[in-house]
């Protein structure tokens, strides 16, 4: 027997499903459009924007790559890998100190590190420019490495510390009984146990660094050293009349992180959950 309630329920479910699917289309279609535009010709781009490309010009990708996107990509990889490693290592090291070692003024230290979460990078921008110039680091790899690491430590330490606090104290005691030093306990016992949160923070930091724009724009000045977000805007102004190549460059810039997200989705969501749950 079909009740009024169950009809409403089915209708409601149908409506919800339709809405969720429509939203998925809104999310995906622009991305699909971006990919398709990357293989069109300029004339097609200015024609019917919904049309499929007549001939698939994959050579646009090669052109984009040769016009600097290849170099930008390499720079982005270099900066992302080094700053992520530095950030996660320094943060895990600090988190260990904050949770499992007795240190003087630990509360002050903790507040100092975590308060960094609340500070907007824009505020420090102008002094940082002068500082890096005075240090001779302006427009170098080191500028970005230092900035990305410094500004990401608070958040990363936060997440790792929260995770470490949950590890039972017996772990350290067992390590201590074995005669392991604190440093050895960190490397051999605690760090491996923190693997899930480490993976999560690595993914979050990659996401941040890969996409960062403000510092990359201000602290690098073109030439051979430029990360993707800034390089892409250059590609736009340099080869503006060749828009399909710009689209191809955008796809090259976006793809690695999307792939990474799907590959590490499990860790990623778990990382967020861990962060929230504490």
């Amino acid at each position: 027997m079909v009740t009024r309630g169950s009809v409403l329920l089915v209708l409601g479910r149908g409506f919800v499903s339709a809405f969720l699917l429509a939203l998925a289309v809104v999310v995906l279609y622009p991305l699909l459009w971006m990919v398709l535009n990357g293989v069109k010709s300029n004339a097609e781009l200015f024609g019917n924007p919904f049309a499929l490309p007549v001939a698939w010009r994959w050579e646009n990708y090669a052109t984009a790559w040769n016009r600097g996107v290849g170099d930008y990509l390499m720079t982005s990889v270099l900066v992302t890998v080094t700053s992520t490693l530095a950030t996660v290592f320094i943060s895990a090291w600090a988190a260990y100190g904050l949770t499992r070692v007795r240190i003087p003024f630990s509360r002050t230290v903790l507040i100092l590190i975590l308060a960094g979460l609340m500070l907007a990078p824009t505020v420090a921008l102008i002094p940082l420019v002068r500082m890096f110039q005075a240090m001779g680091l302006y427009n170098t790899f080191w500028a970005l490495l230092i900035l990305y690491t410094a500004f990401r430590i608070p958040f990363t330490t936060f997440l790792i510390r929260a995770y470490m606090m949950d590890l039972p104290a017996e772990v350290d005691e067992a390590a201590a009984v074995d005669g392991a030093s604190k440093a050895r306990a960190f490397w051999q016992v605690i760090l491996p146990m923190c693997r899930p949160i480490i993976v999560s923070t690595v993914i979050l930091n990659i996401l941040f660094t890969w996409n960062e724009y403000l510092f990359a724009m201000i602290f690098t000045s073109g030439g051979d050293f430029q990360t993707l977000p800034v390089g892409l805007t250059n590609l736009m102004s340099r080869h503006g009349t060749d828009y399909p190549v710009v689209f191809a460059g955008m796809v090259i810039a976006a793809a690695p992180v999307i792939v990474l997200f799907f590959a590490g989705q499990r860790y990623f969501i778990r990382g967020l959950a861990d962060g929230i749950g504490k």
């Binding site: 100190g97 904050l98 240190i103 100092l112 590190i113 960094g116 500082m131 230092i146 410094a150 430590i153």
Partner: peptide, 22 residues
């Protein structure tokens, strides 16, 4: 034991807090 937090604190002090004051 401050050695544990020194790298983090040092970087933050030099590149986050000092510029704020400046």
């Amino acid at each position: 034991n401050l050695i544990w937090v020194l790298p983090a604190i040092g970087l933050l002090a030099a590149f986050v807090y000092l510029p704020l004051v400046q």
